[in-house]
Nucleic acid binder design. Sequence first.
DNA 1: CAAGCTGCATGAAACGATTCAGAAGGGGGT
DNA 2: ACCCCCTTCTGAATCGTTTCATGCAGCTTG
Lengths: 340, 340
Amino acid sequence: MAAASIKEVARHAGVSLGTVSNVLNRPNRVAPATRQRVLDAIAELGYVRNDSARQLRAGRSRTIAIVVLDVANPFFTDVVRGAEQVVEEAGAMLVVCSSGEDRARERRHLELLEEQRVRGVLITPVGLGSQPHLQRLNSRGIPVVLVDRGSGGASCCSVAVDDVLGGRLAMDHLLAQGHRRIAYLGGPFSIPQVADRHAGAAAALAAYGEPGELRVAATDTLTVSAGRRAAAELVSLPLRQRPTAVFCANDLIALGVLQELTTRGLRVPDDIAIVGYDDIEFAGAAAVPLSSVRQPREQLGRTAAQLLMEEAEGGATHRHRHVVFQPQLVVRHSSDRPRR
Amino acid sequence: MAAASIKEVARHAGVSLGTVSNVLNRPNRVAPATRQRVLDAIAELGYVRNDSARQLRAGRSRTIAIVVLDVANPFFTDVVRGAEQVVEEAGAMLVVCSSGEDRARERRHLELLEEQRVRGVLITPVGLGSQPHLQRLNSRGIPVVLVDRGSGGASCCSVAVDDVLGGRLAMDHLLAQGHRRIAYLGGPFSIPQVADRHAGAAAALAAYGEPGELRVAATDTLTVSAGRRAAAELVSLPLRQRPTAVFCANDLIALGVLQELTTRGLRVPDDIAIVGYDDIEFAGAAAVPLSSVRQPREQLGRTAAQLLMEEAEGGATHRHRHVVFQPQLVVRHSSDRPRR
DNA sequence: CAAGCTGCATGAAACGATTCAGAAGGGGGT
DNA sequence: ACCCCCTTCTGAATCGTTTCATGCAGCTTG
């Protein structure tokens, strides 16, 4: 019942504390016969290491944390899967925390993680306001890797996809399809990805030579229901102001828009074309298969975790690195040239 | 740099160890002036509690774990969200582990969690083989709540949705739409949900009075790509053996089937009708809006977490409870009566 | 004024694992 | 017989907290 300690195992096997510890950590330093006796005792007592004690002594834990904006977003679940592979290979444990795009929750999580002396943190920060807390972790010797978030200075490693380029790809495509009144749906703009994708789109429009309009409809979160609400507003615009295409900050928003437009009897892409972002697995299976900007999600997670492990082992010799992946536009039917 | 300990804080503030600890844990037992001095010292040194030491002393941690079959499955992410609410309200931390439907991974996770002396475990076990490990946790005083998994004996609390009923609802619907050659897609059957939903479907067919066929196409996992593969096989059957409707063990499979059938030029529901399970958010936004059996996902998570907290606090007085929710069939277009 | 409180602060004793200097015993070499 | 080395094992010290018995003032109370 009461969890057996190493001490009881030692007594049971007729050896000392240190010997049991050796069996556990450096089995080859112990004579086979003794080792077996200890192992038997462990089995008999149902002994299980107490990780708290072990960590206390070691000064740090074997768990890595990943703090994402939203656990329910398929983009992040794929990133998590990628990271998981690498972390588990290294014999560590990955814990997933969700900030829900909420600064306070993010802060609370980081505090708890610091109390737990985690080995490292992978994070997609809610905004730039997180910088000080991350700095603090770093100064404590806890490596931090920014996920899907450019440099942020040279203060830590980062893994990102070029969101400005992604925005440009999407916008260029819509312009080429003949659209001139285009809306960008997404938010909050405090999330860097949201801002960058918009910046890319705006740059593409500016570079295009012909006049056009990029209206912004900010949402307060990046979810399907936020997309539905934004679409409802869009539709209520007078017809001549209503955009003929929307570029959404992520696929969840895009799917919400698609749903809302469809239930209101508007046709996609004929009345309004849509381009999403992330190319989540469901994008291709949508009512109208969604054009979307694809990101290498699992690879993002894998690479981030690798950088982290590298920094955690490397120690002093470590140099921060910034890996940037290129996004890729996947054209499906939601952005087909409208028949008019 | 080096993490300051409570001892250094004490020295800095000119008080004893115990006083600092009191400021941290029972502030009102300390005279305001002293308290302030300690708080200043804490701020100045950037002291952060060492959770390992605290746990070691306390004998248990403040984290709760949830072990799901697949982090990327929207069903589970919603369950997680529900559980998160309750757990965080109680001031604890939820860590998410994914077994990936793999027994070995599940076992490894449970072992690590046991080493960490977690406060409790919410789990959707891969199969019945997990029973002994859960028993063991329980006998160690770590409460376990089974999620989305019926009783499993009276050895722990459980929260579930009546999967047999869900299977029956789906099957009754398909039979009522005139289908007689129906396939059940899903697997592995070692996952109880998969087996129960099938059992419900089989029972419904048996009870229907008219002859009909329920062919089983087992998949090795519950993902979109497994659904695609299963559909490909189905289509390769000679026409007169090919089912006119499929009931899928979850929506991911169903979406995969829908995708594969569509790319192969088969029409849903006219050539083959589909009913899914879970009614995830994407089901309604699919190419053909998916009929599906809805489960109260977040509530499942919330209730499970509540039962767990209750058991963790309640101690000896606790009585295991088994909460069962009723599923509900949501009919959309993927199971419309075929026009022939 | 002694006795008994109350309020605050103290510091030693856990918690359970790891580590490390050193003891014990057994060979081998001279 | 002696010395030294090697393998194997020992047990005390340590990590940072929490808790608890204890000490010490300064009050009230009879």
